[in-house]
Design a protein around this nucleic acid. Sequence first.
DNA 1: CTATGAACACATTGTTCATAT
DNA 2: ATATGAACAATGTGTTCATAG
Lengths: 119, 119
Amino acid sequence: MPRGEGKFLIKQRAFLKLYMIRFVEEHKMYGMQAMDELKTSFKPLGYEPNHSEIYRSLHDLIDDGILMRTKKVQEGAKYKEIVVYQFADYEKAKLYKKQVKTDLDRSMSLLRKALEDVY
Amino acid sequence: MPRGEGKFLIKQRAFLKLYMIRFVEEHKMYGMQAMDELKTSFKPLGYEPNHSEIYRSLHDLIDDGILMRTKKVQEGAKYKEIVVYQFADYEKAKLYKKQVKTDLDRSMSLLRKALEDVY
DNA sequence: CTATGAACACATTGTTCATAT
DNA sequence: ATATGAACAATGTGTTCATAG
């Protein structure tokens, strides 16, 4: 689809990238942890993101120049490396959040309009 | 994707099928007319459905046993046949509308939650 | 087992083509 | 030109497979 023309609701990817940014802002961040939190938090609304979409969202944010990867040894006796993230460009992150907010608001309007028009 | 498990927002198809039902309820209905109305009505919100999705929605509703096709000669001097629709099973239509309302409400909740969580 | 990632497959949707008036 | 429909192509996302602790 060319442009942002004719688009319907916000995509899952953008939705998750937003949450990934938020998790990094709160310094609690690696992939599986993010997924578990989101699953718990959204399960009552019937939404459970899978691990691939989480990783794709994180990788996207790296490609966007917004996040960067760091490796870190997990606490405990396990000596297992996990991948943690920090901001590569926080200004870009804030800009992205602003863009996604616009799309979230727009999507809300679409749904609200349908509810008003039809019911 | 199996079940309704793990699902994100409502699909465009369901959204449009809802509007097609509404148009038939209002007895003003053929494909292009529906598309033009929807485009005009949603353009301010950045959404312009294309003709293929409109027709797919109508065909779906026939397959669902909710609508049926009728042919009709268009008014004016043009003698061009158009395809109009009426209900094949209005109870089914009402049931479908109820189901879609649930999904619309659920989708609204997802978006609202993201707005609350992140901004 | 957990964590990360890629590959593959399917589902949804957009674009183009066909046919008839 | 308008209207309908199908075919094709690209995207988005879910499922499975691979690798490493």
